[in-house]
C-alpha cells in the first residue's frame, strides 16, 4: 500500500516538471473542408484534418420508417462506414458516440416524426478519426440546414508516456500515447457534450486535456465560421 502511494507521489512530481514544455506539441494540423459536394444528400461535407479525411452526408428531416418513428421528436440515425470491409463493433460504438453528441444539439422536437440520417464515410485515417467524424458531421448538418442549438466540434488529445499533451495527434502519436482522450464541445460556452478516453491518466491530466481542448475548440469554431462566411459571401 505504502509503496503504491510513493509511486503515485513520484508520478505527480514528474507531471509537475513536465508542464513547462508543453508549448510546441500543441498545434492543430492543417484543416480543410468542402461543403455541398454531393448532389443527392440534403447536406454534405468532407472534412480533412491533416491526412485524416471523412466524408459526411445528411438526409433530413425526411420520411421515417413507422418502426423507428418517435412521436415527439426526430429520429436521429448515424451510420459510419469503414473504408475496408464491413462495419464492426468499433464503428458501432463510434456511431453511438456521434449520435449522442448530435442528439444533444439538434433540435429534434421541431421536426417530430421525421428522420435525420447522418452517413459518414471514412476516406483516410491518420489519427484523431473520431474528432474528424464529429467535425464532418457538424458541417454536414449545417449544410443540410438542420436546426441546432449550437455547433459542436471534436478534439482529440493524447498524453505521452512522460505526460506531454499533444493536440490533434497523428496515428503514430496515438499509438505511442499513454492515453488518448476525445471530447466533443459545443460552440456556445465550450461545454462538454461527449468524452471518450482510452488509457491511463490522472484526474489532473483529464482537466488539463479538457482545458486544452477548449482552447483548441476556439480555433475549430473560427474555422467553421470562416468557411461558412466564405460560402455565403457574395463574391
Amino acid at each position: 500500500m505504502a509503496g503504491t502511494m510513493q509511486t503515485e507521489a513520484k508520478n505527480r512530481t514528474a507531471d509537475g516538471t513536465e508542464s513547462g514544455r508543453q508549448g510546441p506539441g500543441c498545434s492543430l494540423r492543417h484543416f480543410a473542408c468542402e461543403q455541398n459536394l454531393l448532389s443527392r444528400p440534403d447536406g454534405s461535407a468532407s472534412f480533412l484534418q491533416g491526412d485524416t479525411s471523412v466524408l459526411a452526408g445528411v438526409y433530413g428531416p425526411a420520411e421515417v420508417k413507422i418502426s423507428k418513428e418517435i412521436f415527439n421528436k426526430a429520429t436521429l440515425e448515424v451510420i459510419l462506414r469503414p473504408k475496408i470491409g464491413l462495419p464492426g463493433v468499433a464503428e458501432k460504438s463510434r456511431e453511438r458516440l456521434i449520435r449522442n453528441t448530435c442528439e444533444a444539439v439538434v433540435l429534434g422536437t421541431l421536426h417530430p416524426r421525421t428522420s435525420i440520417t447522418v452517413v459518414l464515410q471514412i476516406v483516410s485515417d491518420a489519427g484523431s478519426l473520431l474528432a474528424c467524424c464529429l467535425n464532418a458531421a457538424c458541417i454536414a448538418l449545417v449544410d443540410a440546414g438542420v436546426p441546432m442549438r449550437a455547433l459542436f466540434c471534436g478534439i482529440t488529445c493524447a498524453l505521452d508516456s512522460d505526460g506531454t499533451l499533444v493536440l490533434d495527434p497523428t496515428a503514430r502519436q496515438e499509438k505511442e500515447a499513454r492515453a488518448v482522450l476525445t471530447f466533443a464541445l459545443d460552440s456556445v460556452d465550450q461545454k462538454l457534450l461527449m468524452s471518450t478516453t482510452k488509457g491511463l491518466y490522472s484526474d489532473a491530466e483529464l482537466q488539463q486535456c479538457l482545458a486544452a481542448a477548449q482552447a483548441a475548440s476556439q480555433h475549430v469554431f473560427r474555422f467553421y465560421r470562416e468557411s461558412l462566411q466564405r460560402r455565403y459571401s457574395k463574391s
Binding site: 508543453q22 498545434s27 492543417h30 480543410a32 461543403q35 480533412l48 491526412d51 479525411s53 482545458a211 480555433h219
Partner: peptide, 27 residues
C-alpha cells in the same frame, strides 16, 4: 492526397493552415 485535390477557388471549400494552440494556462 485529397487535401490537395480540393479546388481552392471553389466558394464551398476552405482551408486553414496549421494552427498553434496556446496551452500555457492549461495547468
Amino acid at each position: 492526397g485529397f487535401a490537395e485535390s480540393i479546388a481552392d477557388r471553389r466558394i464551398t471549400a476552405f482551408k486553414m493552415e496549421k494552427a498553434s494552440v496556446d496551452t500555457c494556462d492549461v495547468e
